[in-house]
Amino acid sequence: MKSYSDEEVKKLEEEVGGVLSDSYKRFLLSFDGTLPQKRFFVVGNGDSSRIHHFFGFECDDDGQRYQKFVGERYSVETLKLLPIADDPFGNYICLDISASKDGNGAIFFVEHESLNAEYINKIHLSGDFDSFIDALMSSDENDEYIKSAAPETWGDFDTQLEEMKRLRQLEISEKK
């Protein structure tokens, strides 16, 4: 992996017209889009998602990098939110890049369906990047979170899954 400099981060800040938080700059310079082991995060009451890509300077197989968002598809200038990652459904995890001291560095979840709408649906995830990273969960931790947040839904899911398995086995045995 290529090393990047503070100058390249400054150039990115100029391109997006905002300020990256110090903790995010350290992450970007150290890992440049590398995925952490823990990828799941809480989105809302009982909901969670997972990081699909962290965007960086280098392109990965899907071409995920910052230049994709500068002046394209996402109003970074208006919202002062820079997409730093996405989830498997195309929603964005964004960093507040406004110059305001109290807002700089906050992390938001933005649903992709609302990007072209009059109202942008953004959900506050964390006050800063380090706290967001610290709160990421493993797959097992995410399962436990979902079970505790919505036990009735999880129970229904287990019941439905068992019924689907039973029906599939019945279908296979009838074909024999």
Rank of each mutant, 00 (worst) to 15 (best):
Q169M: 08
F31I: 00
N104L: 11
L79G: 04
L28Y: 08
L125I: 07
S139M: 10
R65N: 12
I107S: 02
D87H: 11
K147E: 10
G33P: 03
V76T: 07
R168G: 03
A135I: 04
I51L: 14
D96M: 00
N91G: 06
T78D: 13
P36S: 10
T153D: 11
L82R: 00
K176C: 07
L115A: 12
A150S: 14
R65D: 00
G18W: 04
K176V: 09
K2H: 01
A106K: 15
R39W: 10
F57D: 06
S75H: 08
E15V: 00
K11A: 10
K175G: 05
D61V: 05
L167T: 04
T159V: 10
K10C: 04
L167R: 03
L29M: 09
A117Q: 15
L136M: 04
V9P: 00
E152M: 07
R166Y: 09
G103F: 07
P88L: 11
E141N: 07
E14V: 05
D22R: 00
Q67I: 12
D130Y: 00
V9N: 02
L81T: 05
R166G: 02
M1F: 14
V110C: 10
E118N: 11
K80M: 10
S114D: 06
E14A: 11
K25G: 00
S148C: 04
N91H: 07
G44I: 00
L12K: 01
G105S: 06
S48M: 11
L82H: 05
D143K: 09
M164L: 11
G33A: 07
I93H: 02
H52N: 15
N104M: 02
G105I: 04
E13G: 01
F109W: 06
E118G: 14
D61N: 02
D134F: 11
L161Y: 13
Q67W: 04
S98R: 07
S98Y: 02
V70N: 08
A99Q: 12
A135N: 11
A99I: 13
D32G: 03
S30T: 06
E8D: 02
H52Q: 12
K25C: 07
V16Q: 06
E77D: 10
S98D: 12
G90T: 00
Y92M: 08
R50A: 13
M1K: 15
T159N: 07
S131L: 10
N116V: 00
R65A: 04
T153N: 11
E163L: 06
S3C: 04
R168A: 13
S114P: 09
K80H: 11
F31A: 03
Y66V: 01
V9D: 00
T153Q: 11
R73H: 12
F109C: 08
P83S: 01
D22Q: 11
Y119I: 13
D32L: 06
A85N: 02
A117K: 15
T34V: 09
S21E: 01
N91F: 03
D134S: 15
L167F: 05
L95D: 03
H112R: 13
K165V: 09
V42H: 01
V9G: 01
F40Y: 15
K38E: 13
F31D: 07
I172M: 15
E118R: 12
T78E: 15
I146M: 14
S126G: 06
R39N: 05
E152R: 08
V42A: 03
